[in-house]
Amino acid sequence: MRVAIAGAGAVGRSIAGELLENGHEVLLIDKAPTAISVERVPQAEWLLADACEITSLDEAALERCNVVIAATGDDKVNLVVSLLAKTEYGVPRVVSRVNNPKNEWLFNESWGVDVAVSTPRLMSALVEEAVSVGDLVRLMRFSQGDANLVELTLPPEAALAGTRVGDVGWPEDTALVTIIRGNRVLVPDSDDALEVGDELLFVAAPAREAQLEDLLSVRGE
């Protein structure tokens, strides 16, 4: 998989390192000469250019990329890069960094964003996930399909404890994708019984989140 990353700061370089370790091709783009640190990620391709300029993206051959990641520290730049990647080059997957949570509403398919990653929101969600039992925690928003990745830890005395996954009347537009049980990560099977303390990860439409929380909490009794 070929991935172009706009923004070669600490975030962009870290992402590049992870992708390279997983065997992917990575191109780092930045307009600041001081950001071009080839020795820090020597396996990556580097391009000194403005990722908001069509000529720069032509030079980067963005049409050959499977994924574009807008990882600069400027939300305006990330939006422009995302829009150009999607509309001008037809990149299948565009992931964009959100620096200011107040701007998160802009990062949607209208701006070419498939997945918006807000570091402040993600950190607060992970804190909530660590301390919340029985409450639905939103971990990530997917722009395509208007869906969220949400988590709920099944509380003691939950109505559905002991119930088979296949016997639960899940809300529409909701999918249970993973059960984390202790040190195990389970792909849900219809015969699996839910247990108290299970961390349940769902992809769900925002309109169904309240139904999902009611179903899984003690209030569902």
Rank of each mutant, 00 (worst) to 15 (best):
M1I: 10
M1H: 12
I5R: 00
A6G: 13
G7L: 02
A8G: 14
G9F: 12
A10Q: 13
V11Y: 05
G12V: 04
G12T: 04
S14Y: 04
E18V: 01
L19W: 06
E21N: 11
E21S: 08
N22G: 07
G23M: 08
H24T: 02
H24Y: 01
E25M: 01
V26F: 02
K31H: 09
A32R: 15
P33Q: 01
T34D: 14
I36M: 09
I36C: 07
S37L: 14
V38Q: 04
E39F: 08
V41Y: 03
V41K: 04
P42T: 07
P42E: 05
E45G: 14
W46L: 03
L47Q: 15
L48M: 07
D50I: 03
D50E: 09
A51Q: 11
A51K: 06
A51D: 10
I54G: 10
I54T: 12
T55W: 08
A60D: 08
E63D: 12
E63C: 04
R64C: 15
C65L: 14
C65T: 08
N66V: 03
V67T: 12
V67H: 01
V68Q: 03
A70C: 06
T72W: 07
T72Q: 06
G73N: 10
V77E: 15
V77K: 15
N78Q: 09
S82H: 01
S82V: 03
L83G: 00
K86V: 05
T87A: 11
E88M: 09
Y89A: 01
Y89Q: 02
G90K: 02
G90L: 04
V94S: 00
V95S: 07
V95D: 01
R97H: 03
K102R: 13
K102N: 13
F107S: 10
E109T: 15
E109W: 10
S110F: 15
S110H: 15
S110E: 14
S118H: 09
M123L: 14
M123S: 11
M123P: 11
M123T: 08
A125Q: 01
A125S: 09
L126D: 10
L126T: 08
V127W: 06
E129C: 05
E129Q: 04
E129D: 10
E129F: 01
E129H: 03
S132D: 14
S132I: 03
V133S: 00
D135I: 05
D135W: 03
L136G: 08
L139A: 02
F142D: 02
S143P: 00
Q144I: 15
Q144E: 13
D146H: 11
N148Q: 09
T153M: 06
P156T: 03
E157K: 12
L160M: 01
L160G: 07
A161V: 11
G162N: 12
G162Q: 11
G166W: 00
G166C: 05
P171V: 14
A175P: 00
L176Q: 02
T178V: 15
T178D: 14
I179H: 02
G182R: 01
N183E: 11
R184Y: 00
R184P: 13
L186E: 07
D189L: 08
D191C: 07
V196T: 12
G197E: 09
D198V: 06
L200F: 02
L201R: 09
F202I: 11
P206W: 03
E209R: 01
E209H: 02
A210D: 12
L215K: 00
L215G: 09
L216R: 06
S217W: 00
G220D: 04
